[in-house]
Design a binder for these strands. Structure first.
Length: 194
DNA sequence: AGGCGAGTGAGGA
DNA sequence: TCCTCACTCGCCT
């Protein structure tokens, strides 16, 4: 079902204290939410006003993002366009939305909840494909071994979001994360492993 | 206790 | 069909 046959997605900037997010809307609803990148945000701002619905959706999205950044669960969301995901990914994303703020689960637990106890890695893949971080709380999924796992928007975002929710990142996790970040930084060019 | 490797499920080229 | 991946678990050192 990849035949939009509609206008190209409408991109709009979403300013927060943490930076400017980019929200992308299709005829179905909010389809994508990008973290602030630091680089110039290529959001178009004028043409979209031709679609009043998008304006309403964007208002809801803006409110939801601010709520999420404050560590709370948004009470109201715009319609979400997740049609671009596969069936498995969508089931993962739906499962993620059931995780309350302040709670965390492991990739394995999410996989088990879907009836695929061994699909933890696949869950990670689905999280990585999550087009709506923050609203679909993939940051609440941690590795079972006591790690943070990964985060498409950058691990610093994952940590920040978890802290905002009061989800204690145990000292051990914190140390692990820092070591991880350090090694990632020093290993710009990863050696041939495996 | 920590490191390493194999197994595993799904998506993309 | 093969390769990659935001994982896990168990064995080895």
């Amino acid at each position: 079902m990849k035949s939009p046959t509609f206008h190209p997605p409408i991109r709009r900037a979403l300013a927060t204290a943490e930076g400017t997010f980019i929200a992308e809307y299709t005829a179905r609803g909010l389809a994508c939410l990008d973290f602030p990148t630091g680089t110039a945000a290529p959001a178009d701002g004028a043409a979209d006003f031709a679609v009043p619905t998008v304006h309403e959706w964007h208002t809801l999205t803006t409110r939801a993002v601010h709520t999420a950044l404050a560590g709370k669960t948004p009470t109201q969301l715009p319609p979400l366009d997740l049609a671009r995901g596969t069936a498995f990914q969508q089931s993962v994303w739906r499962e993620l939305q059931t995780i309350a703020a302040g709670q965390t689960r492991s990739y394995g637990e999410v996989a088990a909840a879907l009836g695929r106890p061994k699909a933890s890695r696949a869950v990670g893949g689905a999280c990585g494909a999550n087009p709506l971080p923050l609203l679909i709380p993939c940051h609440r999924v941690l590795a079972a071994a006591g790690g943070l796992g990964g985060f498409s928007g950058g691990l610093q975002w994952k940590r920040r979001l978890l802290q905002a929710e009061g989800t204690l990142p145990p000292a051990r996790l914190e140390r692990r994360l820092q070591a991880c970040e350090r090694s990632q930084r020093s290993q710009r060019v990863p050696p041939v492993r495996r």
